[in-house]
Computed example of a mutant assay.
Amino acid sequence: MERARNISEFDTSQLWEEYSMIRLCVVHQGRALPLCWRVIKHRSSSVEMSSYQDMLKRASKLLPVNVKVVLLADRAFANPELVRYVWELKWQCRIRIKGNFWIYAPKHGWQTVKQLHLRLGEAKLIHNVKVHKTESKRLTDVHIAAAWESGSREYWYILSTEPTTLQTFWEYGLRFDIEENFLDDKSNGFDLESSRLRSAPAISRLCFVIALTTLFLTAQGLAVADSGYRRLVDPHWFRGLSYLKIGWNWIHTAITKNWAFLPFYSFTSYLDSHPAIASRRKHLQKLFRIEFYASTLDYAS
């Protein structure tokens, strides 16, 4: 039986094109809960590993020791140093890579992943791959999931430290929860960018307040949904708002109408048994939109 799993997302967000906020979050039911972060004065979303290595080390001490940690990261973090450090922390990872990423094919030598010649709707699951032409950066025994998605016609290349399956694409898709978390920080919630703070330590302390508030509101939203009161603040037949927004609406209404705050809720799983649905039709379109015909290759054989 597989150990309990913790899906962690790693990304950066720019503030005023002057500061970069590096954040590690834990996936929880359609949103990302902030775990640790660092704010640096940096004009680019691409940051060196020295800027976040200590943060990952601290995070490893905050997470339970008896769970399997899977780190999700975008193309800006596709470097061998991060993969090696993930192994050192005894984590796993799923990292999106660019089309010009080099892999070694036994019959063809070095080639880029975009030279895999995918057909529309095809996925190739490649195991035990050697990557990086530069010997000092080279990694062995990693795995690739590559696909050309027929709906958006977008290419997807995922580097994994575990053998890939079609499930790998779904796991990587959870990374977009952190985009919603950044949106909650900004225009969809706390309006962080309206702050007049222009000091990395001060912004980091403000992010701490936002993180605590995110936890509090999300816990309230989960408690509201679990208690059967959701439609008092989210009138959709199915859940239409995030748990954070449900909690936000509940607290606002509780203050104006003298309702009680609900007991806190335990964060138990990254899986959401009641996902937010804008409409049944759109939900079914999304649910059955992506299909692949897959082939598996083992470059070690």
Score class of each variant (00 low, 15 high):
3 R>M: 10
5 R>P: 03
6 N>V: 15
6 N>D: 10
6 N>S: 15
10 F>D: 08
14 Q>W: 02
15 L>W: 15
16 W>I: 02
19 Y>R: 11
20 S>E: 08
22 I>M: 07
26 V>P: 01
27 V>G: 02
29 Q>S: 04
30 G>H: 06
31 R>M: 08
33 L>E: 03
34 P>C: 00
34 P>R: 07
35 L>H: 03
39 V>Y: 11
40 I>D: 03
42 H>E: 11
43 R>F: 05
45 S>V: 05
45 S>E: 11
48 E>F: 14
48 E>H: 14
52 Y>D: 09
55 M>D: 01
55 M>W: 05
56 L>M: 12
61 K>A: 13
68 K>F: 00
68 K>I: 08
69 V>D: 00
72 L>K: 06
83 V>T: 14
85 Y>M: 10
88 E>Y: 08
92 Q>M: 07
92 Q>C: 09
93 C>P: 07
96 R>L: 07
97 I>H: 07
99 G>K: 11
106 P>C: 02
108 H>G: 01
115 Q>I: 01
116 L>D: 10
121 G>M: 09
126 I>W: 00
126 I>D: 04
127 H>P: 02
131 V>D: 07
133 K>Y: 10
146 A>L: 04
149 E>G: 03
149 E>T: 00
151 G>K: 13
152 S>E: 09
153 R>G: 05
154 E>R: 12
155 Y>P: 01
160 S>R: 06
166 L>T: 15
169 F>E: 08
172 Y>W: 13
178 I>C: 13
180 E>W: 03
180 E>G: 01
185 D>V: 00
187 S>R: 07
187 S>V: 07
189 G>V: 06
194 S>N: 13
194 S>H: 15
196 R>F: 02
198 R>C: 12
202 A>T: 08
206 L>K: 10
218 T>C: 01
218 T>I: 10
222 L>T: 00
224 V>P: 06
234 D>H: 06
234 D>F: 02
237 W>V: 15
238 F>P: 03
244 L>I: 06
246 I>M: 05
248 W>K: 14
257 K>D: 12
259 W>V: 05
265 Y>Q: 12
268 T>C: 10
268 T>N: 11
271 L>I: 15
271 L>V: 14
272 D>V: 03
274 H>C: 04
275 P>N: 04
276 A>L: 11
276 A>I: 15
276 A>V: 13
279 S>Q: 02
279 S>V: 00
281 R>Y: 06
284 L>H: 01
286 K>T: 08
289 R>Q: 03
290 I>M: 06
293 Y>D: 10
294 A>L: 02
295 S>P: 00
295 S>L: 06
297 L>H: 14
